[in-house]
């Protein structure tokens, strides 16, 4: 018995929102252990989201429809990407909706609207967060494209499913270009998902907030959706990295047992990825905002070196 591709598609769409809070919970657990604290457990993010959903919404007087639409849009867009990125199968009918460049632009929609929502209320914090977020993203984008380009060189494709199939089926090669672009990708992913050293997801200290400053005025279910979308975004970025750089064990047949095994393998890869991120976050301190051009500049440099290494050496 095999599962219809559309079924796998649906499975992915359900899996992502359900797993994302657990992934964030896992990251928190590891982080707490690493820093000698007791952790709130794997399920705490679920409880947070539930609590927020139950609460009533308090909306500022001059909030416009943009402020109210943004949470739904953020959640919806990120959920859509779950149908496009191959998590447990490459046989996805909707994967052709967007290649990796279009995927990055889908994230840009979320950022665009979140930044607008930050400015909608008319507080100084919101504007500050939006301004900084857009600055960071504009520096991260060229590096992101370069990393994508370097990865796409190996499979001569920017379509994710194609990249996965080519890389996983081709014979193994030591590719410095991929190693470089992987490091670049990690640096960029930390910036795009608002993690240390670029932004601190746990801070509410006025001058260091970036993402939190934009969503300061949200409450109730709006906040729940935004937080949930943020968790999903983190997991989507990890999945993107896995699909682009460690694609082994994604492609396969559609029978349930094999799907389950691949799903478990995927979760294991995610868990290891989470530990790596915690190591980075624990080892580094948050940067001053005007050091970020250098940080993202090095990401760009690495990605470019990857591209150059591909042409010169491989």
């Amino acid at each position: 018995m095999t599962l219809h591709p559309m079924g796998i598609e649906l499975l992915q769409l359900i899996l992502l929102p359900l797993l994302a809070p657990a992934f964030v919970g896992w990251v928190k657990i590891v982080k707490c252990r690493m820093q000698g604290r007791t952790s709130p457990g794997l399920l705490q993010p679920y409880r947070d989201i539930r609590r927020l959903f139950i609460k009533d919404v308090v909306l500022a007087d001059n909030a416009s429809w943009i402020f109210r639409v943004t949470p739904y849009l953020a959640f919806g867009v990120i959920l859509m990407t779950a149908g496009i990125i191959p998590l447990i199968s490459v046989d996805l009918p909707l994967a052709a909706t967007a290649d990796i460049i279009a995927l990055v632009m889908l994230f840009a929609i979320v950022r665009f609207f979140t930044a607008l929502a930050g400015m909608d209320i008319g507080t100084a914090f919101g504007g500050m967060g939006s301004s900084r977020e857009m600055m960071i993203s504009s520096l991260a984008e060229p590096a992101m494209l370069m990393a994508i380009f370097t990865v796409s060189l190996a499979s001569s494709s920017t379509s994710l499913t194609q990249m996965v199939s080519v890389m996983a089926n081709g014979h193994f090669m030591i590719r410095p270009s991929l190693a470089f672009s992987l490091i670049a990708f990690i640096l960029i992913a930390l910036a795009e998902t608002g993690r240390i050293p670029v932004d601190n997801p746990a801070t509410h200290l006025e001058l260091t907030m970036i993402h939190e400053a934009m969503i300061l005025e949200y409450s109730g279910r709006y906040l729940a959706l935004i937080e949930w979308a943020g968790m999903m975004k983190l997991m989507v970025f990890f999945s993107l990295g896995i699909a682009a750089f460690l694609p082994w064990g994604i492609a396969g047949s559609g029978d349930p047992l094999s799907l389950l095994l691949r799903g478990l393998f995927f979760v294991a890869k995610l868990a290891v990825g989470g530990v790596v991120m915690v190591l980075i976050e624990t080892g580094l301190a948050k940067m001053r905002i005007f050091r970020l051009p250098e940080y993202l500049g090095s990401a760009f440099l690495l990605a470019t070196l990857g591209m150059i290494a591909f042409f010169i050496l491989e």
Partner: peptide, 8 residues
Amino acid sequence: TLLAAMIL
């Protein structure tokens, strides 16, 4: 190749 890349 890898070593050359590392030198670079």
